[in-house]
Amino acid sequence: MLLNKLSIKHIIKKPRILNKYPAPLFLMIHGYGSNENDLFSFQKDIPENFFIISIQGCYSFGSDKYSWYDIDFSNKDRFINIYQAKKTIEKISFFIDEAIKEYQLNQSQVWLCGFSQGAILSYAIAFKKPEKVKKVIALSGYLEKKLLPKNMNSSYIDLKFFISHGKYDTICPINLVKKGINFLKNQKILSLQYKEYDSGHSLNSYNYQDIINWIKKNKSF
């Protein structure tokens, strides 16, 4: 059921296994032209200690089609509407704080899982909120430096990344992903797993299984 009580519409799956500590937030951010139900299909295989939230894009352009910012597919230099994307980063960052308070979640164990646009936003949000975000699953997206905070003075040593990309992706070229990985290494990110797959701008079964295995391996409860 789509919930409307916070600043972004969302769907949830509450943890079925409760520990003595507040549950970690597993936030899903879908890609361009999709909706909150897309990545939520992962929930059946994600450990049941997580409080899972999948959010709906800010902009609608068709039946159940949403985005987080406009894309100009004809102009690689202006592929991302930077102004809209920055506004969305602020909005999702605020939503994270809202959700933690509303659902009484762990303030320092937020996971982000994003596909395409959602992955691009996940990178930026992780660097904006390193005190909260600890794990990032970036699928078929890349790190856009123009969206990162101006002052990169915080310690990012606790951040862990799982990054995957299709070798034949024509929407987000793989060379952009590799540039982002070099940037992460320069930021002294110690835990980074990157894998390529025989796919385009999509996930195949091998990619999906690697995602689930990484989640299970890196959960701390």
Rank of each mutant, 00 (worst) to 15 (best):
F73V: 03
S74G: 00
F95M: 08
L148C: 07
K188Y: 08
P47T: 01
Q104L: 11
S74P: 04
N19A: 13
V110Y: 09
C113G: 05
Y66I: 03
I212E: 07
Y194G: 13
G141F: 12
Q107A: 10
I52Q: 09
Q104P: 02
L3K: 15
S63Y: 12
I82L: 08
Y197P: 04
K195S: 09
L184F: 02
D158G: 04
F50Q: 03
I71C: 03
Q43A: 01
H10Y: 14
S199N: 10
K216W: 06
S122E: 05
S191C: 11
H30L: 09
S7H: 00
F40Y: 06
K179L: 03
P22Q: 01
Y123F: 15
K195I: 02
K5T: 15
K129F: 07
I53Q: 05
F73E: 11
S60E: 15
K145M: 14
G141E: 05
W214T: 03
K167P: 07
K5F: 12
S60M: 11
I211Y: 06
A85C: 13
D77A: 12
L3I: 14
H165P: 07
Y123N: 03
F79I: 01
T88N: 05
F115C: 01
N106F: 13
S7D: 10
E102R: 10
K178A: 08
W111R: 03
I171A: 14
D64C: 00
I163A: 11
H10Q: 13
S155G: 11
F61D: 05
K134N: 14
I181T: 00
N35G: 09
K146I: 00
K185A: 04
Q43P: 01
I215V: 15
C58W: 04
I52S: 06
K13I: 03
Q43W: 03
P130F: 00
S116V: 09
D70H: 09
K145G: 04
I125S: 12
Q43H: 12
I17Q: 09
T88D: 00
N151V: 09
E102G: 00
E90W: 03
Y168Q: 13
E48I: 04
P22A: 06
N218M: 03
K188V: 00
C113L: 10
S34V: 12
P149L: 01
L147T: 10
